[in-house]
C-alpha cells in the first residue's frame, strides 16, 4: 500500500485500491496490507487524557486511531429512593453514540447491550464495598466510531473511574482482535471488523494477571485461541502502562 500512484494523475479518480478493499477475499490472502498500513500485531496510536469534563467527579478522553471516546464519572452519590437498601455500592453504566459517530447518520448499534457489557467489564474491578448505599454513574459517549469501540470505551471508563478517585483493584485495559482468514489482527478498524470471521475481546487487570471479561465469536481452534489471547494480553499490558503514565502525569501536573 506504499502509495505508488505514479501512473495516476493527481486529480481525483476512483481509486482501484479502495474498490479492491471493499471485497472480502482480499483479507483471506496471506499477505495483504491493513487499510491503515499497520502490522497485524501493531496497535493504533493512542492519545489519553484525564479531566476532560470539569463538572464530573472524574473524566477521561481516549483517542485510538479514529475512535474517539469521552467518559464522565459522577458520584458516588445517594442511590435513588426507589432503590432497595444495599450494603455495597451500585454501578450504573450508560453508553451512547453521537448521531455523527458512524458513516450513516444515527446508525446506532445496540447501545443497551454495549452498556450492559461495559457494566460487566467494570464491576469486577471496582471495590464496591467502599461506597455503600450510593451509586456511581459512568456515562460514555462515542464521538467517533472507528472500530474496536467497546474496548476503547471500557479502557476510557476505567481511566475516568481512577480520575474520580473510585477505589479500584487495578486499572482495566481492554483490547480486541479480529480473525481474518489465517491472520489475527489486533485493534481492528471498522472495515476489518465488518469482514471479520471471528473476534475476541479481552478485558483484563494487567498487573493482577486477571481477565474480567472475555467474549469470543466465530470458530477458533486451540492454537489460534492461545495465540490470540497472548497477543491480546500483551497489548492490554502495554495499554495499562500507558494509562498509568497518563494518570501519573495528570496527578503531578495538579500538584504543581
Amino acid at each position: 500500500m506504499a502509495g505508488k500512484d505514479n501512473a495516476t494523475p493527481s486529480t481525483y479518480s476512483p481509486s482501484p485500491k479502495i474498490l479492491k478493499k471493499k471485497r472480502a477475499p482480499v483479507f483471506t490472502d496471506v499477505d495483504w496490507v491493513r487499510p491503515d498500513g499497520r502490522g497485524f500485531h501493531q496497535c493504533r496510536p493512542a492519545y489519553l487524557r484525564t479531566g476532560a469534563v470539569n463538572s464530573a467527579s472524574g473524566s477521561a478522553y481516549i483517542e485510538i486511531g479514529n475512535t474517539k471516546v469521552i467518559v464522565s464519572v459522577f458520584g458516588p452519590r445517594e442511590s435513588k429512593k426507589a432503590m432497595m437498601y444495599s450494603d455495597i455500592g451500585r454501578l450504573n453504566c450508560n453508553v451512547s453514540y453521537t448521531t455523527f459517530a458512524t458513516p450513516t447518520r444515527g446508525q446506532v448499534s445496540d447501545c443497551k447491550e454495549i452498556s450492559a457489557r461495559l457494566h460487566k467489564a467494570l464491576e469486577g474491578a471496582i471495590i464496591l464495598d467502599t461506597f455503600p448505599k450510593t451509586t456511581v454513574d459512568v456515562f460514555a459517549l462515542v464521538l467517533e466510531s472507528g472500530g474496536s469501540d467497546l474496548p476503547v470505551v471500557i479502557s476510557c471508563a476505567s481511566l475516568a473511574l481512577a480520575d474520580a478517585g473510585i477505589m479500584l483493584y487495578d486499572l482495566i485495559s481492554s483490547v480486541s482482535v479480529s480473525c481474518l482468514g489465517k491472520n489475527i489482527v489486533i485493534d481492528p478498524v471498522s472495515e476489518e471488523e465488518s469482514y471479520q470471521e471471528g473476534g475476541l475481546m479481552i478485558t483484563s487487570m494487567a498487573s493482577r494477571n486477571e481477565i474480567t471479561q472475555l467474549a469470543i465469536t466465530g470458530e477458533w481452534s486451540t492454537p489460534k485461541l492461545n495465540e490470540a489471547m497472548e497477543v491480546c494480553l500483551a497489548a492490554c499490558f502495554k495499554l495499562g502502562e500507558a494509562m498509568r503514565a497518563c494518570l501519573k502525569e495528570s496527578a503531578s501536573a495538579s500538584q504543581e
Binding site: 460487566k120 464491576e123 469486577g124 474491578a125 483493584y169 483484563s204 487487570m205 493482577r208 494477571n209 486477571e210 481477565i211 474480567t212 471479561q213 472475555l214 467474549a215 469470543i216 465469536t217 466465530g218 470458530e219 477458533w220 481452534s221 486451540t222 485461541l225 489471547m229 494480553l233
Partner: peptide
Amino acid sequence: LCGLTKRGSAGLDP
C-alpha cells in the same frame, strides 16, 4: 470453539 462469554464479576487467570 465457536463462541465464549464470561459471566460473574470476579477476574480469572488466563
